[in-house]
Design a protein around this nucleic acid. Structure first.
Lengths: 159, 159
DNA sequence: TAATTTTGCATCGTGAACGATATAAATCCC
DNA sequence: GGGATTTATATCGTTCACGATGCAAAATTA
């Protein structure tokens, strides 16, 4: 009678959704002192790897469109973490650069990944198990990217 | 010199965050025709399993607080999917019940899980791999719940 | 039973996500 | 070269998430 697949317990997506929210919540004690949010932390991770990138490049790394990136970056600019200057060759672009303050946060962030790992994992064994997820998640993300892309082109082809 | 752990590629959380967003995006073609969003779909999953639940019980299942649930349910009520009545024994409670329309969506949702599975998975083999994530995610979620809970009590004990 | 604490819900404000739409600059193509 | 298309960014509106706060009802405890 009842469709087993339509139960919350059997949904992979609900687990991803919950795990993502809980993880972001777990970052709070580490990010609050730096005065940044988790998405802002992600932007900083990208900029710490390579400074002075146009908005679209950061967006591609984070898989976020400009309608999310622009307001996010505007808030970060207002907070004094970055500057947004016009591109030289391509004047449409906005080059995002770290300020002194944005660079300084890199030092303070050094211990975050290790602290998070230690906080979540009860044991070495458990850590090993959890890390098994990474290649599986990468596979899933790859498939989902293809799927969402194909869904979009289908949508367009309606007309 | 550079901290490898502070690179986007080495972040489990970023993968969870991305996978969750992409999955929700992949649901769009299936949920748009029903006129509901993904979080609303989750609420319906809970109510289809058991109708007439107080807000807090639904929130516990979805791990969402009332500050998220109340507006979400208000929108669903306005859309004619549910009703929110006062509890009889406990008058503080709001009992959430499916309307005829809300129940009717159950039939339309029957094929969603299978469609999603087929859409994402290239092969049986791949599906099997991805499903290996479920127990790992459950483990992680359990750990994160404990962690976030302990972080909260620490916060309180400051005073 | 009175005082205290907890619980269930609501409201407000802020920061994301994201669809839809707009605009100007760059690129393509005939 | 000039018109069409694509690209980079921005803005708007709606829905979520969630911290903070408020309030009344229920439960606990003194």
């Amino acid at each position: 009678m009842t469709n087993e697949q339509l139960k919350l317990e059997n949904q992979l997506c609900f687990r991803l959704y919950s795990a993502a929210r809980l993880t972001m919540g777990a970052y709070h004690p580490y990010l609050d002192p730096l005065g940044i949010t988790y998405p802002q932390y992600l932007v900083l991770l990208v900029l710490w790897e390579q400074d002075k990138q146009p908005v679209c490049d950061i967006g591609k790394r984070l898989m976020l469109d400009t309608n999310t990136m622009t307001p996010l970056l505007q808030r970060m600019e207002k907070a004094g973490l970055i500057t947004r200057t016009r591109g030289k060759e391509d004047t449409r672009q906005r080059i995002v650069s770290l300020t002194k303050q944005g660079k300084a946060l890199y030092e303070q962030a050094q211990t975050i990944p290790e602290s998070m790992t230690k906080a979540v994992m009860a044991s070495e064994e458990e850590l090993k198990q959890i890390l098994q997820m990474i290649p599986l998640l990468d596979k899933l993300i790859e498939e989902l990217k293809k799927l969402v892309e194909s869904q979009k082109s289908k949508e367009i082809n309606k007309y």
